[in-house]
Simulated scan of single mutants.
Amino acid sequence: MDVEQVFREERGRLLATLVKRFGDLDLAEEVTSDAIEAALRHWPVDGVPDRPGAWLLTTARRKAVDRLRRDQVYAARLALLQVEVSRADPPAGEGLPDERLELFFTCAHPALAAEDRGALTLRCLAGFTTPEVARAYLVPVATMQQRIVRAKKKIKEARIPFRVPDAHELPERLPGVLQVVYSVFTEGYAAQREDLAEEAIRLARILRRLLPDREVTGLLALMLLIHARRSTRTELLEDQDRSRWDRTMIDEGTALAEIALTGGHGPYGVQAAINALHDEAPDFTHTDWPQIVALYDVLMTLTPSPVVALNRAAAIAMRDGAEAGLALLDDLADEPKLRDYHPYRAARADLLHRLGRSEEAAQAYREAIALAGTETEQDFLRRRLTAIEGRS
């Protein structure tokens, strides 16, 4: 068993459980780090336990109790916590994903700034590193560090309780939770970590049972329609073998996308509809690009952003030609959020290559490689660069 993979998979669930039980985010992070350090000392000698999640949880809880014993402020809690530690450990992972979803709603508290809620949740409860969170929000790492520190400080100063919100509070917090779940999915998909992508889908299914909201349905549809192409994700869409796509998942996602768009349009439902058009096309040539562009036009009215504009430009390039798409990309060159966004450089590289401007395309691919955040993305871009250089 890969020890590093165990830590990646368990860290977020462990933090969520500890925050819920102890009500102190800083304490939870400290003892989580202590438990992982203990595992690094013991597991290479004793072997990875059969239930690594339970081992880490037990170790972290005991370390938390030790810390609280030394802090008289928490003396009133100590007796109860000691009883809890002495109980038999639960099966690894039992109930933890649901507890994590509950904490997602907790961190979506309206007292926190909107830009801080998702960042805090991804860093502390979903187990993302600070650079991964920064990449998800298209901001520098230093900026993201400040946001996370600010959110933690606000929680302490405002004494925001770590509790499951009441039923009437859930709809207000839902958009922030959906954003976090989708960020977990996109990071997992980009890094080829199916555990993260599938966990996000599972959480979305739970959300849909609890809150049958149109946008919850749209998000679930969107993730299913993207994940259906996971076996070919390291290739350009035009080169993918569509017989390897998961047709059952596509059928479910398409049906949910139709439900999500019934009676109105939401951002996730529109994005799901775009991906349904990709998945339903018999081949790349017969993709309904005019309809996809029309849907991106709708999306721009709902959630205008440089990233949506970038995707719209790529679709227009397929409908009207590479030159039309490149002109739109050039118009976005000064957008701050796209400056370090590698898909923007990759999109320019592809269109420059289609126009026969190989040297410029190669340079754009080099820039994209330098900005890509995962080894999977870098490998894909290197293959594209090699192909261009070989043809040149």
Rank of each mutant, 00 (worst) to 15 (best):
E280T: 10
D288G: 03
T217V: 07
D246C: 02
W289L: 09
L203N: 02
T248M: 08
L222H: 11
G269P: 13
D241G: 08
R208F: 03
E215P: 07
I206C: 03
D251F: 03
R209L: 09
G218E: 02
L211F: 08
W245C: 07
L225Q: 04
M249V: 01
D279L: 08
M249A: 12
A276D: 05
D283W: 06
L277S: 10
E258N: 09
M249E: 13
I206F: 06
D288F: 00
R242A: 02
L207T: 07
D213F: 03
L256Q: 08
D283P: 07
H286Q: 14
R214G: 04
L237R: 15
A257W: 01
G263E: 14
I226F: 00
A228V: 04
A255D: 15
W245N: 06
A272L: 09
R229H: 00
V270M: 12
T248A: 14
A257C: 12
R247T: 06
E215K: 06
L222F: 10
L210G: 13
Q240P: 03
Y268T: 07
M223V: 07
D246S: 05
T234F: 02
L210K: 12
T232H: 00
R244G: 04
T248S: 13
P282T: 06
H265F: 13
R247Q: 12
L210M: 12
R229F: 00
A204R: 01
I274V: 15
P212Q: 07
W245M: 08
L210W: 10
E238T: 05
I274P: 01
L207N: 07
L277N: 03
A260N: 12
R233N: 10
W245S: 05
V270E: 11
R247Y: 00
R242P: 03
Y268R: 15
T234C: 09
A260E: 09
A281S: 12
R242L: 09
L219R: 03
P282G: 07
R208N: 09
S243P: 01
R247S: 10
E280H: 11
E258F: 02
Y268M: 15
Y268G: 01
A204Q: 08
R208Y: 03
D279T: 07
A272W: 02
L207A: 09
R247H: 04
D246E: 11
H265I: 05
G264N: 15
L210Y: 08
F284K: 02
P267I: 13
F284D: 13
H227V: 00
L207I: 09
R214W: 01
I250H: 00
A255N: 10
I250T: 11
Q240Y: 05
P282E: 14
T262W: 07
Q271N: 15
E235W: 10
L261G: 12
Y268K: 11
L261A: 13
L211E: 11
I250C: 01
R233E: 02
V216R: 00
I206W: 14
E238K: 13
M223S: 03
L219A: 07
E280A: 13
A276F: 02
L219T: 04
W245T: 05
G218N: 04
L237V: 14
L222Y: 11
Y268E: 15
T234M: 14
W245L: 09
E280S: 13
L222T: 03
D239S: 12
A272C: 12
T248H: 12
D283K: 07
G263W: 08
Q271D: 03
I259E: 15
E280F: 02
